[in-house]
Design a protein around this nucleic acid. Structure first.
Lengths: 340, 340
DNA sequence: CTGTTAGCGCCTTCAG
DNA sequence: CTGAAGGCGCTAACAG
């Protein structure tokens, strides 16, 4: 009692008390075979009540394999990435991996800088958001041959493995619903072009669908703050200033759509009669709104789960499919109605 | 060109090419003095174009000091912790620390289990949410003498250092505003008692304030899902089923308050005329609502910043105040109005 | 200002 | 089934 900042017990201490070599303890505790079950049990008990915790750094050095996984997402101010992370992290944690998370704020150079710093931990794998990265980073990661999972978006030529949504198709599916309701004068509020490739892909899907219906391209309004409700409000204000040019507004996510909806109503417009509003993601918020938001529900949790499983498989030498596309689900809601 | 998965260059390689000893390189790169600025520059340039990245694990072993910080929060499904984290993480990252984040879902035994696993990384410091922890964990952490920051809540007897809000006082301040408007029949919707100590503290502050005004204790409705809008909706539904017993409902956060507000209005009640609604946190959402929510804005970002700075100071041997209380700010909003 | 020596705690490899 | 030797990449502590 009263150990005064003794360093934590190591393999050596456990070995001495057990009267065996360090190697036997190491093998016993790792579950490697080559230890009689009697000694194994004795050692396990001893280790437990000594409070032995293997040193991850020493292990990483010795085994050249670190049990650290680096995960990079744009931000956490939106349930989207929080939910993806949640689904994945539990899987990895259970398997004994710790994750170091970073947020890039949609800045590819920050993503790259982080990966460089991350290299210090010799991570077992890296998880990145999206399939667009600094070219140098792509090459470097591919060259290492380590597992890399790209999340949320998919591509035909992933660095290693990707799990996500086809955002262009999702945008198109949502737009098809709106087109079928008779709308032909769309607008789009989201991040400026070039900032968020997923938003751009959805925009492209929406535009193509309207074009196919003989309508013009959606007017696009760029707003800065990705996550904020206020950004949606500002976007709608900008649109309203243009006069009644549009009959439906697509927002790049539900939060901004909500902000836009509130602003439209505050300006005296009726939704969906005077103007339709569509969001994206199908967050919980959209269901408690007085009129449920017209949106497309994304399989965020499932993406996280599948990504976690594929990553584990990959770490265990099994090669998962290079490209896994999960489907979104249209939520018709009540903020876009048939045009008279 | 075409290096085939060569292991990354180490101190040795840099040293050989520079024609100096490993120690000189080590010192040069760490900015420790005892190296002429000429050699230092030469080494720095060489290291840079070799793409040398020091191995964090080896450093941790050699220096007995890991540059990893463990951070535990209840969840990320709510801007609250995401914003606190954001404020803190940048500070730490800039100083060269990597953070390993965990979510506990308000389960103290999970928090403890995570800390145990975390011990494998010999973290330089630990950051926990709140001041309530498994007793064994408290003792263990105190015994190590390592920096520990408790966030979001404060206590008179922190493990080491705490930075947060006085939740009881915050609840009382919000309630005082509501009492001043003439309300005397409050209800409270939040997690069941015992789940979230901060929610309990706010409830206590609200109850005490109403008691001082001669009113009875608020009826309390427990809802399970901490973050969801739907939880607030269910809470309000439960209250409505009790009949018109209350003239104001306090929700434990803005998200649930929003869900409750929508439900009340859907049930034909006018807010604030028929019933008042108060939230907590002052998230962005509350400002775009048709009537801004009556709430109390919490200094989340500031908590993160200050916590990060105090933590860095502590790591550098400076001892910050053991208890830093940051103030919230009442946002009167428009969902609680004077009683006639 | 620079180099040498001796580990940090564990794992891989090779002997018994 | 068990043990001994050597090294992972780096940094303290001590020489010069």
């Amino acid at each position: 009692m009263g150990r005064i900042r003794n360093r934590p017990p190591g393999l050596r201490e456990v070995a001495q008390r057990a009267g065996v070599s360090m190697m036997t303890v190491s093998r016993a505790l790792r579950g490697v075979d080559g230890v009689s079950s009697a000694t194994r049990a004795r050692i396990a008990a001893l280790a437990a009540d000594l409070g032995y915790v293997p040193d991850g750094h020493a292990r990483a050095l010795g085994a050249a394999d670190s049990r650290i996984i680096g995960i990079s997402v744009p931000n956490l101010f939106n349930d989207v990435f929080a939910q993806i992370l949640d689904g994945m992290r539990r899987t990895l944690e259970t398997a004994g991996y710790s994750s170091v998370v970073d947020t890039t704020d949609y800045d590819l150079s920050r993503e790259q800088a982080w990966c460089d710093r991350m290299a210090a931990w010799r991570p077992a794998a890296l998880v990145l958001t999206g399939c667009a990265h600094a070219p140098a980073l792509r090459e470097a990661l591919r060259a290492t041959g380590r597992p890399v999972v790209e999340l949320w978006d998919v591509s035909d030529d992933p660095i290693d493995v990707c799990v996500g949504l086809d955002h262009r198709a999702a945008g198109a599916a949502l737009a098809a619903h709106v087109v079928a309701l008779g709308h032909r004068r769309p607008a789009f509020v989201g991040p400026p072009e070039g900032v968020d490739p997923r938003a751009d892909a959805r925009f492209a899907g929406i535009a193509a669908t309207f074009a196919a219906a003989g309508a013009g391209a959606p007017g696009r309004v760029g707003v800065d703050d990705q996550s904020a409700f206020g950004a949606g409000a500002r976007g709608m204000t900008a649109l309203l200033a243009q006069g009644p040019r549009h009959d439906v507004v697509f927002f790049h996510n539900d939060n901004t759509a909500f902000g836009g909806l509130m602003t439209a109503e505050a300006a005296g417009l009726r939704v969906p009669e005077d103007i339709g509003i569509a969001g994206f993601n199908g967050l919980d918020l959209t269901r408690v709104m007085p009129r449920p938001l017209t949106t497309l529900k994304t399989p965020r949790r499932q993406i996280g789960l599948v990504a976690g499983q594929h990553l584990l498989a990959r770490l265990n030498g099994v090669r998962p499919p290079a490209r896994t596309v999960l489907a979104g689900r249209l939520v018709p809601g009540a903020t876009v109605a048939p045009q008279p």
